[in-house]
Amino acid sequence: MQFLLLIYSSEAEVAKISQAEMAAMHGEYFKFTEEIQKSGNYIGGNPLKPITTATTVRVRDAKRVVTDGPFAETKEQLGGYYLIEASDLDQAIAVAARIPGARFGSIEVRPIRPIGQAAQA
């Protein structure tokens, strides 16, 4: 099965992290990514730019409505993701728990629905 691991954290809190700590964190992410590449779990993944860079697009009555945001009103924002292959939810949870950001923010684990399979549950 494939799972998307969505990494949420508070951008306000992340902004307070010192440069040295941030460098250490990057090192951890690099190491973690390498590990899950070796174990065969890794399919893809990227960090995202902060939510201030986000744009929201909607189409209503065939008209395109483009706005800024979403705004950082919620406590935690989506900051990055991994797409992984795992045998089941327990393995996906085990991988998610090793993401460095799990110690500060939270990781949402979502199974990927294969195209053509009906949406259920």
Partner: peptide, 9 residues
């Protein structure tokens, strides 16, 4: 449904 769809082993 969740057991099936979320991959709960």
């Amino acid at each position: 449904g969740k057991i099936r769809e979320a991959g709960i082993p």
